[in-house]
Amino acid sequence: MDMDAVVGLLHATIRLATPLLFAAIGGLYNERAGVINIALEGKMLLGALVAFMVAFSSGSPWLGVVAAAASGMLVALLFAYVTITLGADQIVAAVAINLMMLGFTGVVFRLMKAAISGSLSAPTFPEWAIPGLDRIPLLGPVLFRHLPLVYLAFLLVPLAHFVFYRTTWGLSIRAVGEHPRAADTLGVKVRAVRYLTVLWGGAMAAVGGAVLSIGHNSTFIENMTAGRGFIAFSAIVFGKWTPLGTMLASLLFGFADALQLRIQAGILEPLFRSLGIQEVAYQIPVMLPYVVTLVALFFIGKSHWPAAAAIHYDREEG
């Protein structure tokens, strides 16, 4: 494998990890506060659509991202109301929201498509090469020639680390996730913390969707997130509920995906030929990222949920 191929592989790894990272690092906040959120998928899908629509009609991809974040919050609010205020089961509420978003985005996109004749191509972000740094051999082209959203996603990781472990906010979030009753006694507003973290998670998941529709691509289609929200959710668990771990998990998945596409593109052809393998069914490489994650999970061992994860907190309950 020559240098260019390595750069290509690693650059693709980061690209593929970015939407997952947004959704996962945002979701990490509400997971740490004890709210399990597999509705990331629906929020990503909505974010992808809203970002595309707003960028398309306003001409500004940044406005698209902001609108996506707001739309993600709106759905998160519904999720939060049903689960935190009413105390409904978090997973089934998420299943419902995913279904609704699949339908809603489909309907709205069709209306938009019916109204606009001609090409449905939204303005996207230009690549920001970081001057100087992008000249470093290998690292430069891999790390410092990306869309602005990519840098943003990776900056959210140290931010999350800082918030969780160096601020009272972070302490409150973790306390709410581990022992809501104790946190409550100490004056932490359990519901408020959960609401806020769910809203933040929703906003970030939607931005992750925006990366798909107006970041690395310039269009939307129905169900284009294709399950990435679930993978982002897995990345949180896999990353043991830490920002750094979540990032590494997202990168591992991105790497496996980038690699399998290159296997299909023929980089292992000489190896296969020397082994006498004529043809590999495409399902095997396509499955690779999921298998790799599962195997990695096996070796990485225990990962403990926040003690109060998925448990509704009600002051009046005994």
């Binding site: 409904a88 089934v92 609704m100 339908g103 309907v107 069709r110 129905e222």
Partner: peptide
């Protein structure tokens, strides 16, 4: 549009689980 059905299905679930919480 057939996708409308997903919305109706999702709404039904949300209201049913909210109802059972109430």
């Amino acid at each position: 549009d057939v996708v409308v059905i997903y919305i109706l299905q999702g709404l039904a679930i949300v209201f049913l689980i909210a109802g059972s919480s109430v």
